Amino acid sequence: MTEPTSPSDAAGAVPADPGWPIAAPNLPATDRTGLRQRVDKSLAWFLADRRAWMAEVDSALAPVADAIEGFVLRGGKRLRPAFGYWGFRGAGGNDSDQVVKALAALELVQASALIHDDLIDRSDTRRGEPAVHRRFATRHRAHGWTGDADGFGDSAAVLLGDLCLVWSDELLHAGGLDPAALSRARPVFDAMRTEVTIGQYLDVLTQATGDTSVERAGKVARLKSAKYTVERPLLLGAALAAAPAEVEAAYSGYGLPLGEAFQLRDDLLGVFGDPAQTGKPAGDDLREGKRTFLVAATLEAADESGRRDLQRLLGSPDLDAAGIAHLREVIVASGAAERTERRIGVLLDAALAAIESAPIDGEARAALIDLAHAATTRTD
């Protein structure tokens, strides 16, 4: 892979007319030091290189490059690289484009997880655009190819998600970091990818068995989302900076409760969110049958009629707008939505207390405080 040679382009040059918009900043904490733009440039540079390589293999791979570039570069909050970066800076690491490139690999892990998640959940959209499996099924139909269009789309999504996961490894190693730093980071990166994968399996298992306990919902949330959104990126940055044990402990004390709060906000948005903001259909989590903390809390507290309706309608692919509105009423009436909001507040306070007392750089502390508020009050 050819490295950019111009100092001004050290994070990877974006083509003059790339054909897609760089995602607009929507979380100020991810844009300190121009971080968001630098992550975007690193991703654009890497994906342009992969596109060129695939073009040499076979021109039929151009739609694969289009789909992955569109998915990765047209959206996303860049939260994970931000947590990784400020974890690195907080532990005494000096800013460098090499570190930003390595941490941009977290966005490819995220892309892999979302592509697979949309397939598993049979979601039609992501970020307001067709989900990857729907996109390739449409391509199959448009060309009049043989076989089952939906099956082709499903296969493509599995493979593109896998490709993003493979490429996350490549990008981690492509930025020019010192081999010793990469050696320290490798166990954290591997553990994160393992946790999100087994968390996804436990989520699928929970839906199949109908386990609606608060305890199970919490474990799934921690593995599938919480740890890999906040704690592991922080610890990845800490590893790159060779942080001492007390800094790593402080990051876990901040990252675990904040990651759980982030997921609880996601649960609320999955039921009550505005599709124009979330890019997903209204009430999608109810239609998909997600056994979230919100659902578990509702089943604990709802009256008999409410529990019966939730158990009957949750996970119904035919759940219409009226059904979603009714289940929202059941959730609110049970007090589960309010309970979830209170839980977010408790977890946020715990995270802020941990980072306030952490032995880290003051600028990084301020950034992590901003990120904590942004992650728990978001609307998309």
Rank of each mutant, 00 (worst) to 15 (best):
2 T>L: 04
7 P>H: 00
10 A>F: 06
12 G>Q: 04
18 P>G: 01
18 P>W: 00
20 W>C: 03
33 T>Q: 11
34 G>R: 08
35 L>P: 01
36 R>G: 07
59 S>V: 12
63 P>N: 09
72 V>E: 08
86 W>R: 00
89 R>A: 09
90 G>Q: 00
92 G>K: 01
93 G>T: 07
98 Q>W: 02
101 K>A: 08
112 S>Y: 14
113 A>C: 03
116 H>D: 03
117 D>Y: 00
120 I>V: 12
125 T>M: 12
139 R>P: 08
139 R>S: 13
141 R>K: 11
142 A>W: 09
146 T>V: 08
148 D>Q: 10
148 D>K: 07
150 D>Q: 12
155 S>R: 10
171 L>Y: 05
177 L>V: 14
178 D>E: 13
178 D>Y: 11
179 P>T: 15
179 P>L: 08
191 A>K: 10
191 A>P: 13
197 T>A: 11
203 D>L: 10
212 T>L: 02
213 S>R: 12
213 S>L: 04
215 E>I: 11
217 A>S: 12
219 K>H: 12
227 K>N: 09
229 T>H: 05
229 T>A: 03
231 E>L: 01
231 E>I: 04
232 R>M: 07
237 G>K: 01
237 G>C: 11
240 L>R: 00
241 A>D: 10
244 P>W: 03
252 S>D: 11
256 L>S: 13
260 E>F: 15
268 L>F: 06
271 V>H: 08
272 F>M: 14
274 D>K: 07
274 D>N: 15
274 D>Q: 13
283 G>K: 05
285 D>W: 10
291 R>H: 13
292 T>I: 07
294 L>Y: 09
301 A>S: 15
309 D>V: 09
311 Q>K: 13
314 L>T: 07
315 G>V: 13
316 S>E: 11
323 G>T: 04
323 G>I: 05
325 A>P: 01
327 L>V: 14
328 R>E: 15
337 A>F: 12
337 A>E: 15
340 T>Y: 00
349 D>V: 04
350 A>K: 06
352 L>W: 03
353 A>H: 14
354 A>I: 02
356 E>Y: 06
364 A>V: 05
368 L>P: 04
372 A>Q: 06
